[in-house]
């Protein structure tokens, strides 16, 4: 704790965060969050964050490690529910619907808001079964043919089908890292979610696999609303339309990606982008 406050003093002795700089409201918001606070037991991880995810756009959440961007992302499909000491306050809406409402079923929410994780995590099943997992548990296909169709189209959308079409029965864990991550994306879109959350999806991959994933993300935004957490500013610049900069659990600045990277308003954002810390 003392270390943290020390850094805060160092970086914000002359720079204070007073609310968020820039435009947090989107005209056509798929999800909109207002005054979100997240606590781990007594420790506050997210402080009063408000932002919108614009429909069919990629929103990038950037910031130094430990700034709370992943925590915030995990609130959006209530993955934080699995941590008993975690408490979320504020208004989080998906299409005008409170996702933390008592009567809202997290199972349904997570079917609508899918998630791709930092480390590729294919299930120890065949490639086919990995993609068919979601449709099966949610009862999306009534027969084998329908299921086949969902699996194939998902693999195609994830740009993986041509590479694996001959070995759909071999285990998903046998693929390369990049292929595994695309399999995980295929697995997510097989459920036809409305929003896809990506938590540093390319951080465990080599540059070539990363490029493929980035291309994929760009294509996917046609159909889905995407939020991506990344520690790579270049990646944020390449794939996103909107960028939000987090610092010490607060949203410092949000705006169009070009503007954030070329002409940041807040000094903290500028320092981060120019590589003074991070």
């Amino acid at each position: 704790m003392s270390d943290l406050s020390f850094t805060e003093n160092l970086t914000s002795s002359d720079i204070t965060i007073e609310g968020t700089v820039g435009k947090v409201v989107a005209e056509d918001a798929k999800m909109s969050m207002r005054n979100v606070n997240v606590f781990y037991a007594d420790k506050q991880a997210i402080k009063n964050v408000s932002l919108d995810l614009a429909r069919n756009q990629v929103t990038a959440l950037i910031g130094p490690s430990g700034c709370g961007k992943s925590t915030f992302l995990r609130c959006l499909n209530r993955m934080n529910d699995t941590i008993p000491i975690c408490r979320v306050e504020g208004e989080l809406l998906l299409e005008e619907q409170d996702i933390y409402a008592k009567n809202l079923d997290p199972v349904l929410l997570r079917a609508r808001v899918g998630m791709v994780f930092q480390k590729p995590n294919p299930f120890p099943k065949s490639i086919y079964d990995n993609v068919a997992y979601g449709p099966k548990i949610h009862g999306l296909a009534t027969n084998k043919a329908e299921l086949d169709e969902i699996v194939i189209s998902s693999l195609q959308k994830a740009g993986l089908f041509n590479e694996v079409k001959d070995r759909l029965d071999s285990p998903g864990t046998g693929l390369s890292g990049g292929q595994q991550q695309r399999l995980c994306i295929a697995r997510t879109i097989a459920v036809s979610p409305e929003v896809i959350l990506m938590d540093e999806p390319a951080s465990a991959l080599d540059p070539i696999a990363t490029a493929v994933i980035e291309e994929l993300i760009d294509e996917l935004k046609e159909k889905y609303t995407i939020a991506i957490v990344t520690h790579s500013m270049q990646q944020a610049a390449r794939v996103s339309q909107t960028t939000a900069y987090f610092h010490m659990g607060q949203l410092v600045e949000m705006g169009k990606t070009e503007q954030i990277f070329t002409n940041p308003v807040h000094t903290l954002t500028e320092n981060y982008i120019t590589g003074r810390f991070g």
């Binding site: 199972v107 349904l108 609508r112 409305e194």
Partner: peptide, 18 residues
């Protein structure tokens, strides 16, 4: 398409929660 997904999921929910 998304509408129908939600409907299908909702339909399965009761049994799954049981």
């Amino acid at each position: 398409m998304n509408r129908t997904t939600t409907e299908k999921v909702v339909k399965s929910l009761k049994q799954r929660h049981r």
